[in-house]
Each structure stands twice: as C-alpha cells, then as structure tokens.
Design a protein around this nucleic acid. Structure first.
Length: 227
DNA sequence: CAGCCGATAAGCT
DNA sequence: GCTTATCGGCTGA
C-alpha cells in the first residue's frame, strides 16, 4: 500500500451488513485480515486486523460475564443493542479506550473487541498520536494492544463511538482488500479474571505468528487451530 | 531481558 | 469494589 498523502478514500470494499449481523464468535475470526481505516485530519490511517476477541450478548445460552452487555442495555453500552457494524468505544481504567464492533441484528447485543492491527498506512502519524518519535518508534509499539490502537488512530468515546463502519462517508471504516487468511488460532481472552466463569472460553482469535499480535511472547494456556 | 508491581481513576454494581 | 490496559520502575537471572 502506497503511503502517499491525501488519498481520496480508504482502500478496499465494505463487508456486508449481514456479515456483522452474525454472532460475534462467527464474526471475530473472519474479521482477521480485514482493514480498519481512520480518516485523521484528511489522511487515511490504515491497519490490518491481526487479533480480535468475541464478547457474547445477554441472549446467549451461556451468559458471558466478561461482556459489557451481559446485564442488558445501559447508556454506555446502548450502541451494542443497535444495528450491526457500528463502533463501540469505551474508556477503561479511567485512562485508555478500547474499540469494539457491534454484531447481531438490532435488539440483540454482542461485539468484537479489536486487540491489534498491523500498521499499513499513516505510520508516522500513528507514532505521533502515540506520543512516540516517528523516527525511532518501532511498528510493534504502535497498534499492538486494544488501547494502543485507539491511541494510534486517535479514537475516543466522545468522538468515535457509534460510527457506522460500513459507510463511505464515515471517518472510521472496516474494509477488505482481498487479503487471504489461511488459518487462525483461538485462545482464551486476555484480561478476564479467573473468577469469571468465562475465564477460559476460547474467544480470542489471532493470525498465528503475526508479530503485531499483542501480549507477552510467552503464552500459557492451550491454543486451538480452528480453520 | 523477562516478569512483577503500583498508579491511573470511568462506569456500573 | 470490580474491570476487555498501559507505562515506568524495580528486581533477579
């Protein structure tokens, strides 16, 4: 992808709305390899999704106590109960943000948390948004981690919550560019407390071996090949 | 260099 | 009081 200035539009084509109307555990692994594009001050910042987690809605047969929606709608999580394919950005621990994509048809909740991107375009701007020196920052420091990618793309709840990711007029879009994913790995989700019944559910999906996947180099816990 | 610890401090219970 | 996180500082190999 050419890191040129002032592209008129983001690269690729939109997935369908019905793709996101599926359950999050269906959407999350199939989101790997797709692009997240953010129009920031006239420039497109683009990264490929290499890690994502599914969070199940309250209608699920087995309640997902790690999901914001699991006790039903609140002002904060309202977008999760709206139409599919919209951004859900929330603040965590009072200082960072995480970005999710709403799944399931309107009336039901469920979402996919974006945990890591491989930066493709606008890399110097991403570094600067992260407060790093664009000349010395390593690509792995930019978008490997759910709050890091929000910083790199300048995503906040105030400005980027509830955006339709499937509209060509949106400043934040999900796109596909023909990138072929041949396999992905499922693992337990990161950061779920051991007392949570959903602690070890294999709902985290990564491109195996991709250097931009977040987390420590050593991973404990079983991994499963799912396709 | 890897791993652990504390600070941070919104939103919901 | 808990949580879908990150960073800097410390500590031990």
């Amino acid at each position: 992808m050419a890191p040129s200035a002032l592209q008129p539009c983001a690269p690729g084509t939109f997935p369908t709305r019905s793709f996101f109307e599926q359950p999050p555990e269906f959407v999350a692994p199939r989101l790997l390899g797709k692009l997240l594009a953010r129009n920031f001050k006239g420039r497109w910042l683009v990264g490929r999704i290499v890690e994502a987690e599914a969070y199940l809605g309250p209608h699920s047969r087995t309640p997902d106590a790690a999901a914001h929606s699991h006790r039903g709608p609140t002002p904060r999580n309202a977008v999760l109960f709206g139409p599919a394919g919209h951004s859900y950005v929330y603040s965590i621990y009072g200082r960072y943000f995480c970005m999710n994509i709403s799944c399931e048809p309107a009336g039901r909740a469920g979402c996919v948390l974006l945990r890591a991107l491989e930066p493709l375009a606008g890399i110097a701007l991403m570094a600067s948004n992260r407060g790093l020196d664009p000349k010395t920052a390593k690509p792995c420091q930019l978008t490997s981690g759910p709050s890091r990618l929000c910083q790199a793309l300048a995503l906040t709840r105030a400005a980027q919550n509830a955006i339709d990711l499937l509209s060509p007029r949106s400043q934040l879009q999900i796109l596909e560019d023909g990138f072929c994913v041949t396999e992905c790995l499922a693992t337990p989700r990161i950061g779920i407390s051991p007392s949570n019944p959903a602690f070890d559910w294999p709902l985290r999906f990564v491109l195996p071996g991709n250097p931009f996947v977040s987390g420590p180099r050593k991973h404990s816990g079983a991994r499963h090949r799912i396709r």
